[in-house]
Amino acid sequence: MEKMKLRNLFAIGTMVAGLLASTPSFAGNTEGSIEGNRFLHRKEYKDMKATMSRIEKDRDRIAFHKAEYKKNKEAGLVIESHMSKKEIRKAKADLKRDKKYLRIDKCDLQSDQAVAVRQSNSDRRAAKKELQVAEKELRKDTRQGNTADLKADQALVQKLTLKKELKEKQSEALKDDVYAFFIYLDDEISEVV
């Protein structure tokens, strides 16, 4: 249990680091599709795609076994029609299970994205706070007339201002990506379910 928690925390940390490392935004993508989104290659999304494919196969199995049942019933084959009924029940149970897995995978993915967004916002607030401390130190040195530290403080304030702006852009890009990704993901799921 403890190993699983550590593994999940490590996975979330890795995900957050990866999301923050890349800044291109999906919102700028004019194609209007899920293709090209950086979440496309995530394990959860691939699991969802596999589950959607199983749902389609389950529906095909149900249709096939219903046709077999009807054909066997008309031919008067009692045992074969009974076996077809069993297969229909199994296929329906598989369909129900796969739909449940799909909902769970989507909830897990939304949860992971919410954690990433919260972490991004936390990093943005930390950068802002760090800048405020540096600006306070700059004002203090300016008031005291401490010219030796003034240049270093100005350079630090400039560096932290750029860092704060970068964190804000990354945070907004992440929010846009998550929003757009789930819009297209919902469309994909509604086509299958």
Rank of each mutant, 00 (worst) to 15 (best):
V78E: 14
F181V: 00
K136G: 09
K73W: 12
A75I: 09
F26E: 05
K129I: 15
D94M: 04
K129D: 15
D123R: 14
N37C: 10
L19E: 15
L102E: 11
K73F: 15
R97A: 08
N37W: 00
V192Q: 05
K136N: 07
V115N: 13
R139M: 14
E74T: 05
K66G: 02
V157P: 07
E188F: 00
K92F: 00
L77V: 12
D108K: 11
K169Y: 00
R59H: 01
L20Y: 11
L162E: 06
R139Y: 10
D153A: 08
S122W: 14
M1N: 09
K175S: 07
L95G: 07
S25N: 10
D47L: 12
D177R: 09
L6K: 11
S190F: 01
C107S: 14
K169A: 04
D98G: 01
K86Y: 10
E80Y: 03
A21F: 10
K85H: 07
D123I: 07
D176E: 12
M15W: 11
N29P: 04
M4C: 05
L131W: 05
I12P: 01
K49M: 10
S122K: 09
Y69N: 05
S190D: 06
C107M: 14
E188G: 01
L109V: 00
A126V: 01
D108N: 13
K57C: 04
K71I: 05
R118H: 08
V192E: 07
D60S: 05
L174V: 05
Y101H: 13
K151W: 03
C107A: 14
N72K: 03
R125H: 11
K3H: 10
A180Y: 15
F181R: 01
E165D: 05
D123E: 14
A17C: 03
L160W: 05
D123W: 04
K96F: 10
F26K: 03
K46M: 11
R125N: 13
D123G: 09
Q154C: 03
K106R: 07
F39N: 02
